[in-house]
Design a protein around this nucleic acid. Structure first.
Lengths: 325, 325
DNA sequence: TTGTATGCGTTATCAG
DNA sequence: CTGATAACGCATACAA
């Protein structure tokens, strides 16, 4: 069995209290006792029980991270950034990949809300989940509207959508297609589509969008992208909802004998570091992942300290000029 | 304050024990009490305190995952797969990105070993960390040699290295350079280099390798890759240690006016799904990520049940034929 | 069928 | 400077 405080105490001929004091460096202690206790701890290879501490302190020093899927470079980088910063604040992270499954998300929430975590950062896309209501757990959302009470960190989706569309138009594209997430979802990312539609209309062009559910298979997704080229053989510009899709569409474009950028211009979205390193050619709208993470933690910290926060924080995007547009 | 068992008990006019019984559906209970208790729980919006349960049960239902960085698609997919399967077994995961920093890894370990997790899956690359010794915590390593007592799950690195090298040779490359991790590290991945060197020698070719530390910056890394082309202008084949590096090298090759595959053949390593979707052109050795995750959990479960395990499990790799080789 | 008392391992209060 | 003791919230043995 693992040694506990009491075992150390016995071996050192002192009380539990004293050992605890040594452990936490609290109160006055003679050097002699300190040495004795450290000795005993060493001998027994003692390690304090975190769970007992958590119970007493009513604090776990764990933050829950709920995201769709870390295998997507954008979320992967975001989660990594969050973990790094939380670690340096003394927090550990429990990660849940919802895989866009509302049941899984609910289940995670139920478990995490039960005193398991001190706070929550959520980037999933399932709405109307009851559990997010009437809780006093500090929660921050990233690019996701949950309810009045939960602050949202997002990048400037409208500006991103506008920049992407204008870039495509400026480079000469006329038949520009935009791929989006599901139509039914109320998310800040919708402002990209708004911007796209307004910019297109402003330039006298016809906006066309294809929406792609998050939880469809790779095969279904390529099916939809294929359909774009079948429905619109004259497409000459694509504004994709993320970089992974942008690259997928590039693959498919090749099959339709479209050369990039001669026949087809493409702009992606997200611009994670790893993507820009691996495929610098892809023109894309860059979300400031590090700043998003910083802001999310700043706001979470405010919430943890029961301070007031704004309900929305918008961070600027930039454009990465590759050769696909 | 959060309601506790006692609050529910009072409201329902029963004892804590009874509420606990209802909660855990244990023992005999009259339907009447059950209803009363559920009523009270509902009214108070009661949620059992996970930490208290963990303390009593001496089990947290949390597994620690220690990996270098989830932003790398290979680890991202692996972690996602592990999380998915652990979730369906009723476990949550605490993730630590060591970022190849031994201090951070040690720190994580110290914390996680303190009754914080029921088991550990480790894929980091720092060796000789004392904490891994003399612990009776179930641990499984992925592609990493730790000590006699910790089982390792790995894909067939020797075969992967051989397949990659032979493919390059067969396609006509003569001056083939291999990039590896740090020379000093004792890891199963070293067998790739062994295979590379043996295969080269067998074909009468001279093996040359460049080692790249894990924790260097993007700039330093590109510096090394640039050097390859400066040192060896006649290089006509590259076997990269992973797909991200392979793509980086492809970018750099372009600057040196090397066309792929005409002037330079490239083979990567890892072959995560997302990579194959985004860059199907990249010829690469595919590690069976899902099978690795399955096996890791199978072995971890054995350890959790105090059963015997082998010390090494090797899974087969395959080759993905793109157009870069 | 239900309740009382005890323990899980720690920390803090208060007394000495 | 140090030691009993209670408390954190829950679940079980034992009793009724």
């Amino acid at each position: 069995m693992k040694p506990k405080l009491d075992d150390v105490a016995k071996l050192a001929n002192v009380s539990k209290t004293t050992v605890s004091r040594v452990l936490n460096k609290r109160g006055y202690l003679s050097q002699e006792t300190i040495d004795k206790v450290y000795d005993a701890m060493e001998k027994l290879n003692y390690q304090p029980n975190t769970v007992a501490r958590q119970l007493y302190n009513k604090k776990t020093n764990i933050i829950g991270l709920l995201f769709p899927a870390v295998s997507n470079p954008f979320f992967g980088e975001l989660v990594e950034e969050l973990e790094k910063k939380l670690y340096s604040q003394g927090y550990k992270v429990i990660i849940g990949n919802s895989m866009n499954d509302p049941e899984k998300e609910k289940n995670y929430l139920n478990q995490l809300l039960s005193n398991q975590v001190d706070g929550l950062i959520v980037g999933t896309h399932n709405q109307n989940i009851q559990q997010y209501q009437n809780e006093n757990l500090p929660i921050v959302a990233i690019d996701r509207i949950m309810n009045q009470d939960i602050p949202v960190i997002e990048s400037d989706n409208y500006s991103g959508g506008k920049q992407a569309t204008e870039k495509l138009i400026q480079k000469g594209a006329k038949k520009i297609i935009h791929t989006t997430g599901p139509d039914t979802l109320d998310t800040p990312a919708n402002r990209r589509r708004e911007a796209y539609e307004e910019t297109m209309t402003y330039h006298g062009l016809q906006p066309i969008h294809y929406s792609v559910d998050f939880n469809i298979s790779y095969t279904e997704k390529t099916g939809i992208f294929n359909q774009i080229f079948i429905d619109h053989p004259d497409v000459d510009g694509v504004f994709a909802s993320n970089d992974v899709d942008a690259l997928l569409i590039m693959q498919i474009a090749k099959k339709f004998n479209k050369n990039i950028p001669e026949d087809l211009l493409i702009v992606g979205y997200d611009g994670s570091k790893i993507m820009r390193n691996m495929f610098p050619n892809l023109t894309t709208i860059v979300q400031p992942i590090e700043e998003i993470a910083n802001k999310a933690l700043e706001v979470l910290n405010l919430r943890l300290e029961k301070q007031e926060t704004l309900s929305e924080y918008i961070l600027p995007v930039s454009i990465w000029n590759g050769s696909t547009c």
